Amino acid sequence: MGRVKTAYLHVLNRTLNPIALGLAKRGRGPFSVIRSVGRRSGRTFETPVILAESSDGLVAELTYGDRVNWYRNILHGGGHVIHRGRTYRIVSVEPLSAEAGLAAYGPAPAAILRVLHRREFRLIRVEAAPTGPSQGH
Rank of each mutant, 00 (worst) to 15 (best):
L75P: 13
G57F: 10
R39M: 06
R40G: 10
R114Q: 14
V81K: 10
A52K: 03
E99H: 02
L102H: 08
A128M: 04
A104D: 00
L102D: 00
P48C: 06
G78V: 10
L51A: 02
G101M: 08
R118T: 03
G42I: 08
I74T: 13
A52N: 04
S92Y: 12
H117D: 11
A98P: 04
G106D: 00
V68F: 06
L113K: 14
G79D: 11
D56G: 09
S134T: 11
A100L: 13
V59W: 02
R43F: 11
P109W: 08
A100M: 08
P109A: 08
E99K: 01
I90C: 07
L113W: 09
R84H: 12
R86Q: 14
E99T: 04
H83C: 07
V37W: 09
L102N: 00
S54T: 11
G85Q: 14
V37S: 11
Q135L: 10
Y64V: 05
N69W: 13
R84C: 05
A98V: 09
G78C: 11
R118D: 00
V49G: 05
L62F: 07
L62K: 10
E94G: 07
D66S: 15
W70D: 04
R114D: 00
R72A: 12
A98E: 14
W70V: 12
R86S: 11
R67H: 12
A103L: 09
T44Y: 00
H76R: 15
S41Q: 06
G78W: 08
L51W: 01
R114E: 09
L123D: 00
R125P: 05
R122A: 12
P109C: 09
E61M: 15
G65F: 14
L113D: 04
F121H: 06
V49N: 03
V93N: 03
I124C: 02
G77V: 09
G79H: 13
H76S: 15
T47A: 10
P133I: 07
S54G: 10
G78K: 14
R119V: 09
A111T: 07
P130V: 09
S134P: 09
P95N: 11
S134K: 13
A111D: 06
R114H: 07
R67Y: 13
S55D: 14
H76T: 15
G132H: 08
A60Y: 10
A104C: 01
A108V: 13
R89N: 06
R125Q: 10
I50W: 01
P133A: 11
A103Q: 12
T47P: 01
E61C: 15
T131V: 06
V59L: 04
V93Q: 04
V68N: 10
R118V: 03
A98D: 02
L123H: 05
G132L: 03
L116A: 14
P133D: 07
R119K: 15
S97Q: 06
P107W: 05
S41I: 05
L102I: 05
R86Y: 07
T44K: 02
I82P: 00
Y71Q: 11
Y88F: 15
G85A: 14
G78S: 12
P95S: 15
A128P: 02
H83R: 11
